[in-house]
Nucleic acid binder design. Structure first.
Length: 747
DNA sequence: TCCGAATTAATTTTT
DNA sequence: TTAATTCGGA
């Protein structure tokens, strides 16, 4: 059993809480996962709750796996009977189990975002709508939003001509999805909620199935997810939600912090627990993080504190430009290594992926192994998706998106005109594309070459289907796909580095299927396909001691001894898109993002900003981020010059920035850019005249007198802008020396 | 049908 | 800058 004596008071309260609703506000690094797992163990051990009646929901597979593993360690019976999973995986499982009652196909396929988009594009074309006016991305966004608000096509509100069209697209999309036997990510949750809210006996069944519901990262739930949780916990009311409104960074995906903030309104008898002791970060890092996030207006009051040491100051380093920033990053990584840390102890965060390129180049040049989290998912690579599309087609020939993806891949002479012919037929008959292909083949009025090519494709898929129904497993099947379609051979013939990389990816795909067959409880094609769409790259851990590069979003939930956050400039972080609309909510989310970034660091936090940066081919001169300026001075160690903005701005006396919320916005940055460009061309202003400002971590700066054990008393000439700083000191009789600060004693 | 030039748009992306 | 997508011509 879990040892409760190691818990602090609020942690223990959350763990021991018995029946009834409970909301836990878990500050960063406050031992949240520990509380959840101990709580589960306690329910089983002390309250005699059957493990299979406990449902724990997370957002990521990784979090689910971790929870399962840690619960398993605490429970003598292990964790296999617990229902632990992501929202999506849990819903998929329940939808399959109750597919008959709910009225959906048992072996539905799951469409990821790309598949959904392909579907929308197809609908757009079929409805003969202008793809410029109704961008698939935008339309899909509307459909997503509707589904997240639990609004079906029948309830979709029409205000104007645009929403009217979206409504039509939504309806057709929905029909096509049904016809294809497909559900998108939102459907997984929406359809289950719908069914539960409509069907009382299904609800009763769920009540029998689950007596306790736990939700992790509750601040990230959207409306349907809240509905789902509520309907699942409606009867027994044993609902425990855990989260941190300060770490809510997915508003743009439909997450609503109100779900956690207003939990007490929805459940007036809810017990509220706040975990405010941080076990992760140094006191200084914590203060820096708090100073940024406490400026938000709408947040649950929380006062994070720690017993950890003060630690080093947070370094704020001024860089010339993004290349200089990368150079300085490399220096810091080397310093960390020389201090005895491993590469995996260090992480580099940035606001947007586009920033990673320069860093990657610098790291490659410096021969430092790294990995970039995010970017293109393995299962999103074109060749992998192609092969998966074949597998999905084998599983379910009605899957139109997959069919259209591979009907001419590799090229087999089925061109646009042929495909259009098939699609016309499908539209007329209201059937799946697969059935339309059959009809076109049987139609003597069609050109014989067309019929022949289509027949060849149809027979190819049928052959693969026959193998599958003869009991060939997914591993054999994927090999068959590669052989029968001659996909690999075509790539081999290409004989280019890119083709080799693709082949390598396909080999990896085969490998991952073999792993799956070895590990899975149910090594069927269906469950492999589900796993593949519900698994992201973050779940595929890479081995080896490497530096980690990722966006701040990807960093949530992780921690590192050393964290470098790059690009701390206005417009970069806080990020400003082209269509920035001065939404204070957006600014608050940027703050929370900064809070998440800072609180990932255990011992050392380094912030860098560039005075000049090329963004999407455009040069920018932006002020250092307000998030740096807001850090209290006693926590901050300025390197490379304390002056946060070019002197000429200060001289012009219009430096209103920071005086009031939104003050920055009152200053047109175009004007700054123009003025600074002029300054640069005069060769002034951007020349660093602030050497005297450079203060090293021990408070050393130019002009100070210091003593050295060997050289005696000397005068500080300068401070290097890296960490740990090297101090240039002139010693009478010895000349000038470069010396590490720790060998010097200030006088 | 396919290739390469031109055009366009560019946060974040748990599933 | 870049990468993805689209379009036009062979």
């Amino acid at each position: 059993m879990a040892d409760l004596s190691t818990l602090n008071a609020p942690q223990r309260q959350a763990v021991l809480h018995g029946a009834g609703p409970l909301v836990v506000f878990a500050g960063a690094g406050s031992g949240k996962t520990r509380v959840i797992t101990y709580r589960v163990a306690n329910l089983v051990d002390e309250h005699g709750v059957a493990p299979w009646r406990i449902l724990a929901v997370t957002f990521t597979n990784k979090a689910a796996a971790e929870m399962r593993e840690r619960c398993g360690k605490l429970l003598p019976s292990g964790a296999q009977d617990l229902w632990v999973g992501t929202f999506h995986a849990t819903c998929a499982r329940l939808l399959r189990r109750y597919s008959e009652v709910i009225g959906i196909k048992r072996d539905f396929v799951i469409y990821d975002d790309a598949d959904s988009r392909a579907m929308v594009t197809r609908v757009l074309r079929d409805l003969r709508l202008d793809e410029k006016r109704y961008e698939p991305k935008q339309v899909l966004g509307r459909i997503h939003r509707a589904k997240q608000e639990a609004i079906g096509p029948d309830k979709f509100a029409v205000h104007d001509s645009f929403t009217e069209i979206v409504h039509r697209i939504y309806q057709t999309y929905d029909e096509r999805m049904k016809r294809s036997g497909a559900l998108d990510f939102d459907d997984l949750i929406f359809r289950l909620v719908e069914a539960l809210e409509k069907n009382e006996s299904l609800r009763a069944e769920m009540d029998r199935r689950f007596s306790h519901v736990l939700v992790d990262e509750f601040q990230d739930t959207n409306h349907v997810q809240l509905r789902l949780v509520r309907v699942l916990a409606d009867r027994h009311r044993n609902l425990c939600v855990v989260g941190d409104d300060d770490q809510s960074i997915y508003r743009w995906r439909g997450a609503d912090r109100r779900n956690i903030l207003d939990f007490r309104k929805a459940f007036p008898d809810a017990t509220v627990v706040k975990l405010e002791q941080n076990y992760r970060s140094s006191a200084r890092i914590l203060r820096a993080a708090m100073s940024v996030v406490t400026r938000n207006v709408e947040r649950e009051p929380k006062e994070l504190w720690t017993e950890n040491a003060e630690g080093a100051k947070v370094a704020a380093i001024r860089c010339d430009d993004e290349r200089d920033e990368a150079r300085i990053m490399v220096q810091h990584v080397r310093t960390a290594l020389s201090e005895g840390r491993r590469l995996s102890d260090v992480a580099l965060f940035y606001r947007i992926h586009a920033q990673s390129r320069v860093f990657e180049e610098a790291l490659r040049a410096a021969n430092i192994p790294y990995r970039v989290v995010g970017g293109v998912r393995f299962y999103d690579r074109a060749e992998v998706k192609d092969v998966l599309a074949y597998l999905r087609l084998v599983h379910n020939p009605d899957d139109d998106v997959s069919l259209l993806r591979v009907i001419n891949v590799p090229a087999r002479g089925i061109g646009k005109s042929t495909i259009d012919r098939v699609l016309d037929d499908a539209a007329r008959a209201g059937s799946s594309t697969w059935d339309a292909i059959r009809r076109v083949i049987d139609d003597p009025a069609q050109p014989s070459a067309t019929r022949k090519k289509l027949l060849a494709f149809l027979e190819l898929v049928e052959r693969l289907r026959a193998r599958s129904s003869n009991g060939e497993g997914p591993a054999a099947l994927v090999q068959a796909v590669l052989d029968e379609t001659s996909y690999s051979r075509q790539l081999e013939d290409e004989d280019t580095p890119e083709a080799d990389a693709r082949l390598e990816n396909l080999r990896e795909l085969v490998g991952s299927i073999q792993d799956f067959v070895g590990d899975a409880e149910e090594p069927t094609l269906a469950s492999f396909l589900e796993l593949v769409t519900l698994e992201t790259d973050a779940d595929r851990q890479t081995e080896g001691d490497r530096l980690t590069l990722m966006t701040v979003h990807a960093a949530k939930g992780l921690e590192f001894p050393v964290v470098i956050v790059a690009g701390l400039e206005e417009r970069m972080f806080p990020y400003r898109g082209v269509d920035y609309d001065d939404d204070p909510e957006e600014m608050e989310e940027e703050r929370r993002l900064a809070y998440v970034a800072f609180t990932r660091a255990r011992e050392k936090l380094v912030l860098t900003y560039a005075r000049q940066r090329r963004v999407f081919g455009q040069l920018r001169w932006d002020l250092r981020s307000r998030f740096v300026d807001e850090i209290p001075p006693d926590v901050l160690h300025e390197i490379g010059g304390a002056a946060s903005r070019p002197t000429w701005i200060a001289e012009r006396g219009d430096d209103s920035y920071g005086d009031e919320p939104g003050g920055y916005l009152r200053r047109p940055f175009e004007a700054i850019a123009v003025a600074s460009a002029a300054a640069v061309s005069h060769g002034e202003s951007y020349v660093d005249r602030s050497d005297g400002d450079i203060v090293d971590e021990a408070g050393l700066h130019r002009g100070m007198r210091v003593r050295h054990s060997k050289f005696g008393v000397g005068l500080v000439q300068g401070v290097s802008g890296d960490l740990p700083s090297k101090i240039t000191v002139a010693f009478p009789g010895w000349g000038t020396k470069q010396i590490l600060a720790r060998f010097l004693e200030p006088l």
